[in-house]
């Protein structure tokens, strides 16, 4: 029965785009096995898809030119971002976003680097199958582990970290060894956050690194995990805590990142971009250094 099944344009294109029911796909694949000409055609379509994505992959990762940043921010958000009386570092960061050059503020929203094409769309919202506020499993997992690490270790007054920030090279070597790959410890002092230190924590894909930053009594946690592919730039509130922690996850290269803040989700939402961009830029600087010593 498999050979006399009729396949139409919807099937052929669906196979190449991964938008076809699995049963139908395997029936089609079976029929292609005995039809070299059609198989070659489908193959060429597939290569074309790959080439297309490779060709324009860099555009997705480029910093977005200033003129393309959302100009017409709704008044409510704009007012919130610049609200006086808000914690001063928040205001300072808002100033940084507004005034630094494009090169400094990389407003990049690359989704998992090159692999963003496909069903997950734009990290906005997903095809009907996914509920609007549900992040992919990896991102959810990373977010909840990061929140847990934050509330376990950063509430510990006597020993929040294993290796102190002053021993940064040692910390970087430890992370590199455990995470398998070069890990650069981001310096966020430009944003008012001092590195307190870090430790290894359990992650979904093996060991993860947990970094602690302090600004007065406030704490910022940065969890670095291998192979996770979190949804980009989503800020969630971890409601188990009072007041709730803000948690944001994103992917960059081989690592997934989660930023946790006890200043809360609103603060993190407003200040995520510069912090994330700083982390990204520093991780990439390492790559560049490694490439051209």
């Amino acid at each position: 029965m498999h050979t006399d099944m009729a396949f139409d344009d919807a099937d052929l294109n669906g196979l190449v785009d991964g938008r076809i029911e699995p049963a139908r796909a395997s029936a089609l694949a079976e029929s292609l096995a005995s039809d070299p000409e059609s198989a070659a055609r489908i193959d060429a379509w597939r290569r074309q898809n790959d080439s297309l994505r490779t060709m324009f992959a860099s555009v997705l990762a480029e910093p977005v030119p200033v003129r393309l940043l959302p100009v017409a921010m709704p008044p409510r958000e704009a007012a919130k971002a610049a609200a006086p009386g808000e914690a001063t570092p928040g205001r300072r960061l808002a100033g940084i976003v507004a005034t630094t050059s494009v090169g400094m503020v990389l407003i990049g929203f690359a989704l998992g680097a090159l692999a963003s094409v496909g069903t997950d769309g734009f990290g906005l919202m997903p095809p009907a199958a996914r509920a609007p506020d549900v992040a992919p499993a990896d991102a959810r997992d990373l977010a909840s582990r990061a929140a847990e690490a934050h509330r376990t270790y950063l509430t510990d007054a006597s020993r929040p970290v294993e290796i102190a920030g002053v021993e940064e090279p040692k910390l970087a070597r430890w992370f590199g060894r455990r995470l398998g790959g070069e890990v650069r410890i981001p310096d966020l002092s430009r944003h008012g956050w001092t590195l307190l230190g870090g430790r290894i924590v359990p992650g979904r894909h093996g060991a993860a690194g947990f970094l602690a930053y302090g600004n007065g009594a406030d704490r910022l946690g940065l969890t670095v995990s291998r192979w996770a592919m979190p949804d980009d730039g989503r800020v969630t509130a971890s409601d188990d805590d009072v007041p709730p922690l803000g948690v944001a996850t994103w992917a960059d290269g081989a690592f997934g990142y989660a930023l946790t803040s006890d200043r809360g989700p609103d603060w993190l939402r407003r200040n995520l971009a510069p912090l994330r961009d700083s982390v990204r830029a520093q991780a990439r600087a390492t790559d560049a250094d490694a490439a051209s010593p």
Binding site: L60, V64, L68, E77, A110
Partner: peptide
């Protein structure tokens, strides 16, 4: 309409590509 700027910002790299 909170979130609009976020959504648009997230969409922009895809529009550019």
């Amino acid at each position: 309409m909170p979130g609009f700027a976020d959504d648009l910002g997230r969409l922009t790299p895809h529009l550019r590509r």
